[in-house]
């Protein structure tokens, strides 16, 4: 797995070699820190991070798509994919290396929101388990968006197209589980269809983790989602790496 480590190291360093990482971190932390207070963090008088987690899916759709869009599109555009894939590295190692490097970067971004849990712990007596599970949910969701974004990045040379496609795909997966969409589906198609939508959507699985409940089915949902999109990305690259 040395090819994996080489790619992983290069990618992760790459974020901090360019302004990408810093711009991303600053904006992410600003938005993620501001929204809970805007939504009434103090007025709620509850020692938890529900408001912080509540906004996470929307922030992550935009931010993760932005991180993921360059993963392969850039590589294709400037031709370095030909260099990468003629080194003794398999496509699987390259895909996993890039994916885990980006996921690690997103984990760093999430860890840097630590002032919020610290604030909550200072002001009250939060349930530590709930916070940890909430963060785990954010991490898994970021990974899922990343896998989707990476897939679309492998489809095209154009980063803008990749950003829009992955933003829309992730958006659909979130909004499919929102009450308004579910009501619409159950009234126009059938209630059974609505429950299918609900289980396929991110929202439902993330909601329970946000409340501090870890269920095997939620973790498996994210796991399968990530694995499937990453495998699909590998297949797409194998098929059209040179085009």
């Amino acid at each position: 797995m040395n090819g994996f480590m080489a790619v992983f190291k290069r990618e992760l360093k790459g974020y901090f070699a360019t302004p990408v990482a810093y711009v991303f971190l600053v904006i992410f932390l600003l938005v993620a820190g501001y929204l809970p207070f805007k939504d009434g963090f103090f007025e709620l008088r509850q020692a938890d991070l529900r408001l912080f987690f509540y906004n996470m899916p929307f922030i992550l759709v935009v931010m993760v798509s932005a991180v993921a869009m360059r993963l392969w599109a850039e590589e294709r555009k400037n031709g370095s994919i030909e260099l990468l894939l003629t080194l003794p590295i398999t496509i699987r190692q390259a895909v996993l290396g890039k994916f885990f490097a980006a996921w690690t970067f997103l984990a760093i971004a999430l860890v840097l929101t630590f002032p919020l849990p610290v604030t909550v712990a200072y002001l009250g007596d939060p349930d530590a388990g709930q916070l940890v599970v909430g963060y785990l949910g954010c991490f898994l969701m970021a990974g899922s968006f990343l896998a989707i974004g990476m897939f679309f990045s492998a489809l095209t040379k154009n980063q803008v197209i990749s950003l829009i496609l992955s933003g829309v795909a992730c958006g659909i997966l979130i909004f499919a589980g929102h009450p308004s969409s579910l009501n619409y589906v159950s009234s126009t198609i059938s209630p059974a269809a609505a429950s299918v939508f609900e289980t396929l959507s991110f929202q439902n699985h993330f909601d329970s983790m946000m409340r501090g409940v870890v269920e095997v089915k939620d973790v498996v949902y994210f796991g399968i989602l990530i694995a499937a999109w990453v495998v699909a990305c590998g297949l797409i690259l194998e098929e059209r790496k040179a085009s």
């Binding site: 080489a6 290069r10 360093k13 070699a17 030909e82 260099l83 003629t86 080194l87 590295i89």
Partner: peptide, 30 residues
């Protein structure tokens, strides 16, 4: 690929890396 050195047309490389960083990456990969 292990026993082959390949220079593609236009010599693609990672633009944001330094020459040192780039050659070290190739060493990592090899």
């Amino acid at each position: 690929r292990q026993c082959l050195g390949y220079l593609a047309e236009n010599a693609p490389a990672y633009n944001e890396m330094t020459v040192a960083g780039f050659l070290n990456f190739v060493c990592d990969a090899r």
